[in-house]
Design a protein around this nucleic acid. Structure first.
Length: 898
RNA sequence: GGUCGCAUAGCUCAGUUGGUUAGAGCGCGCGCCUCACAUGCGCGAGGUCGUAGGUUCAACUCCUACUGCGACCACCA
């Protein structure tokens, strides 16, 4: 089969992907007699679109899944999406507003939910299609959605079980309220944004007498809801005033001065205003002192009726108005520039309003307590391990989890209240009658559960829990969870706690935290800043294989990835690294073309290597290199070092196989000896076959295309066995010999280049050295001649060195290239002097070490011996260089004579 | 405020347990359309490994401090 001159990804990617899918290669079912390997992917938001973070995450998923599959595991990678409560509801709300100028309240709950489903079915899950373009070999039959029927059952079951354990309760607490989304959000969804603002000082006059209290605040509008001023009980300045009243300006309401340790005497005047309705600390103070709670900011972010004349104003307008009024009334003392953090909602950026609300909470302590020892024993392994400690710390300081959300899109809380007798019924099945009074007037709690409540069940809910599914016995615990840092607590820790509680097992053996993809200059990628990259665009430019390889190649375990791409307005102009990987794919392609073009009478069975006695140095060397590469590559994948994996492959294919082995193979291939030809062909096919298998997990498409050209009718490369090391082929001795030959070739090439000698011109070479070394070179002479473009070669072990020749030294072997008239004595002299000073520098360094008695006495024997050998080598080199320089001087003197 | 990570060639990054002349790709310079590949081939230049100390016979590697960048956690007016 003919391959075109350059690899064109577009023409093959779609073809092979649909073929793989049709053949069912991605599917995995319970097979008791086979080893299972399972990953459930982190479900992206159903509204999501592929970004570079996903692209990296799924390149990792797929490289491992394909690797494990080739290793013979019954491999399941289970995909799916998350209903993503707020994100999805917001998206459809926006659409509703744009198209019909209606809010969700206008259409009502049932209709709104219907519309969101409609949207989800129509547009949702785009990202799953995009993952196919990346080549992901996931079991799409098993695709799950966190709101599908079975999943919903699992969620209700979990809620009911937690409730019966007594961990879920209803209570009034300070919660984070998003006035834009009109819902409660959890602490983990709050993002603090550093802000430069002001600290305002306000004067509260004493009710009696003409004293005053000055308080400071960053949020003057909340003063309308103040119900006290607190001072420290031991603050002497305030002792006489405790229990007295001040008049709250603007509201003209008397409020007490209370003593509470919360007030810090070192801050300002030592007095702090107390707004129990709008500040978490003040809320606590209020509870301690039985203070009334006045809500001046409503759910919509506007001032309530309790804000008096400011009622109806937006909270930010109110701030201005309050400041103006305070100013006018002479209550404003001063303002200082002040830097502080503002809590915002990570989904919409709105400033979060702390409000006291009645919500469903979950006590996380018992779960945390049973999970901590599991993590301490490292039953779940983290890569890198430090994330395990972070998780333990988080669990140690865990706080109650606000479960309810005032949304319509999500799992509705399975709690009903009987209107007749107020009985609270918590159960998975919707009740028709009250369990106590048999009344039929039951009202379900209007709220839905935090999306993360359902995500926490992902690994086992997708495999059939709470039913007794065979998948749970076979695939669970899953093997690996691959995710990003930011949802370590939000998601990963909670999956472990819930799995231990419900299944009694860890959910996964390994957790891999992958790096964040940053821009070239180390900033966060952001669509709104124009620095975003669409992975599909990269795939279009360079192919899916190159994109995957580029991501893996840059994925180190210690650093975030500064993705090497020039981007303007979210468009990729060029990505050097991806280009490099595209070139690599093309290199593999052309290496394959070379092999296929030279097959002769037809394919050779790849499993059959030539007999050992037919193998030459180059053959044994490349087999050694192959086996070494197999070992390293396998180890790299197993320890999640993807950059290492990529680099090993690149080096082996490009530098070792193509630059050396293929070049050497050409001689036997194009020669007349048919036995040699057959040997080399077998070698080439074998090497190509093994190389393709090694690369396939990273570059599934090119490797499949080539594999099919090489072995059509043998199924896909993706189900072939991943190469294993053959101990018998590891041969370090051959590596040394080959390295020597390569050094000689490079030295001659270097001489040619330095002497400006045309590449086409054949050189005469005289090799001077020890018999043992020369014998090796003599045996490889045809390669030496071809690779270094050398004509006649002379071998000398003793006697005169040639005059008028360029000199190079490799170890103990001297290389002379007589250049006749072509030699430029001046240039050669400079060159030799440069070599000489380098050697002298090195010698000095080594001698200094050896001259140090401590070094000789304390360093390991082997190290000292090596240094001594080095010293000898440099001395020899210097001697030889000096001799060459001497001969040049002789020639110069001779030339001067007429 | 607390905890942690990172700093190596012009750029993006490797550098396993301290011990060869610190590597790769891109970029740069020189020479090549050599019958697999110009998405290529050959050769080369380029680094006192962030700063200052310390441990050691020996530090890019281990320790301390500092500087710069970043992440996570945190209800102080």
């Amino acid at each position: 089969m003919e391959l075109s001159k350059a690899y064109t990804p577009k023409s093959v990617e779609e073809k092979w992907y649909s073929w793989w899918e049709q053949q069912g290669y991605f599917y995995a079912d319970v097979q008791k007699d086979r080893r299972a390997y399972c990953i459930t992917i982190p479900p992206p938001n159903v509204t999501g679109e592929l970004h570079m973070g996903h692209a990296l995450q799924h390149s990792i998923h797929d490289v491992l899944i394909r690797f494990k599959r080739m290793q013979g595991y019954n491999t399941l990678c289970l995909p799916g999406t998350d209903h993503a409560g707020i994100a999805t509801q917001m998206k459809v709300e926006q659409q509703l507003w744009q198209q019909e100028k209606k809010s969700r309240l206008d259409v009502g709950r049932d209709e709104m939910v219907r519309r969101i489903w409609e949207w989800t079915e129509k547009y949702g899950g785009t990202i799953l299609k995009q993952l196919r373009a990346l080549g992901c070999s996931y079991d799409w039959r098993r695709t799950r959605f966190t709101l599908d029927e079975g999943y919903h059952k699992a969620v209700l079951e979990a809620f009911v079980r937690f409730y019966r354990r007594g961990w879920i309760y209803r209570g009034e607490r300070m919660v984070n309220w998003c006035p834009n989304c009109r819902t409660v959000i959890s602490d983990l969804e709050v993002e603090e944004v550093a802000t430069q603002g002001f600290l305002w000082y306000i004067r509260y006059p004493m009710q009696e007498g003409d004293g005053e209290v000055v308080v400071a605040t960053t949020r003057p509008e909340t003063m309308l809801g103040d119900t006290a001023v607190a001072v420290h009980p031991e603050d002497r300045r305030w002792q006489p005033h405790i229990g007295k009243q001040v008049v709250l300006p603007l509201m003209e309401r008397p409020i007490p001065i209370v003593a509470d340790e919360y007030a810090d005497p070192k801050m300002g005047s030592g007095a702090v205003k107390i707004t129990p309705g709008h500040d978490p600390n003040d809320f606590e103070v209020g509870k301690r002192h039985n203070l009334p709670l006045v809500r001046v900011i409503g759910d919509d972010g506007r001032m309530t009726a309790d804000a008096g004349r400011f009622a109806g104003l937006d909270r930010f307008e109110a701030r201005k108005a309050v400041l103006e009024a305070l100013e006018k009334g002479g209550y404003l003392v001063k303002r200082d520039a002040y830097q502080y953090n503002i809590p915002t909602h990570d989904k919409c950026g709105t400033i979060v309003e702390p409000l006291a609300k009645e919500q469903w909470f979950m006590n996380m302590k018992p779960l945390a307590e049973s999970t901590i020892p599991v993590l301490e024993r490292a039953e779940v392994k983290y890569f890198p391990d430090r994330f395990r400690n972070y998780s333990i710390e988080w669990l140690q300081n865990i706080r109650d989890w606000t479960l309810s959300r005032q949304l319509w899109w999500g799992h509705r809380i399975p709690v009903w209240t009987c209107r007749d007798c107020n009985e609270v019924i918590v159960q998975a099945e919707p009740p028709t009658r009250c369990t106590k009074c048999r009344g039929a007037k039951l009202e379900q709690d209007p709220d839905v559960l935090d999306t993360w409540f359902s995500s926490a069940l992902w690994p086992f809910a997708t495999l059939g829990w709470p039913e007794a599914a065979p998948e749970m016995d076979y695939f669970y615990p899953t093997d690996l969870l691959i995710t990003s840092r930011e949802i370590l607590y939000l998601w990963v820790s909670r999956m472990i706690t819930t799995s231990l509680e419900f299944v009694g097992k860890i959910p996964f053996r390994h957790v891999l935290i992958h790096p964040t993809i940053l821009t070239k200059d180390g900033k966060r990628m952001s669509k709104s800043l124009g620095t975003g990259i669409d992975p599909l665009e990269l795939i279009g430019m360079y192919g899916a294989d190159a994109t995957r390889f580029a991501l893996l190649y840059q994925c180190s375990s210690t650093q975030d990835v500064r993705f090497d791409a020039d981007v303007e307005e979210n468009k990729v102009l060029r990505s050097m690294t991806t280009e490099m990987c595209r070139n690599f794919a093309n290199k593999v392609w052309n290496a394959a073309r070379f092999v296929l073009m030279n097959l002769g009478d037809g394919p050779v069975a790849p499993e059959r290597l030539p007999a050992r006695e037919d193998l030459e140095l180059a053959d044994r060397w490349i087999l050694h290199r192959l086996n070494d590469t197999i070992e390293r590559v396998t180890e790299a994948l197993e320890s999640y070092r993807f950059d290492d994996y990529g680099k090993q492959l690149y080096e082996f294919v490009w530098s070792e196989f193509c630059d050396w082995y293929v070049e050497m193979a050409k001689l036997r291939l194009y020669g007349k000896d048919s036995n040699e030809q057959a040997t080399v062909r077998q070698m080439l096919v074998f090497l190509l076959d093994r190389t393709l298998r090694l690369i396939h997990p990273a570059m599934p498409f090119v490797t499949e295309e080539i594999w099919q050209a090489l072995h059509s009718g043998q199924g896909s490369i993706m189900v072939q066995a991943y190469p294993r090391t053959e101990a018998g082929r590891i041969d370090p001795e051959v590596e040394g010999k080959m390295a020597f030959l390569m050094d000689i070739v490079r030295a001659i090439r270097n001489l040619r280049a330095e002497m400006n000698c045309a590449p086409s011109k054949e050189l005469k070479v005289i090799l001077f050295g020890r018999e043992q070394n020369l014998a090796l070179l003599r045996s490889q002479e045809r390669y030496l001649r071809a690779l270094a473009r050398v004509g006649p070669v002379e071998y000398l072990t003793e006697g005169e060195r040639p005059k008028g020749a360029a000199t190079a030294i490799v170890g103990e072997t001297e290389i002379y290239v007589p250049l006749g008239d072509m030699i430029n004595l001046e240039e050669e002299k400079t060159r030799l002097n440069r070599e000489l000073s380098r050697a002298q520098e090195e010698l000095t360094r080594v001698q200094r070490k050896l001259g140090n008695n401590d070094f000789v006495a304390k360093a390991k024997e082997e190290i000292v011996r090596r240094e001594k050998e080095k010293a000898e080598e440099f001395e020899d080199k210097i001697r030889t260089l000096n001799l060459s320089l001497g001969r040049i001087r002789e020639l110069e003197q001779a030339g001067e004579k007429p």
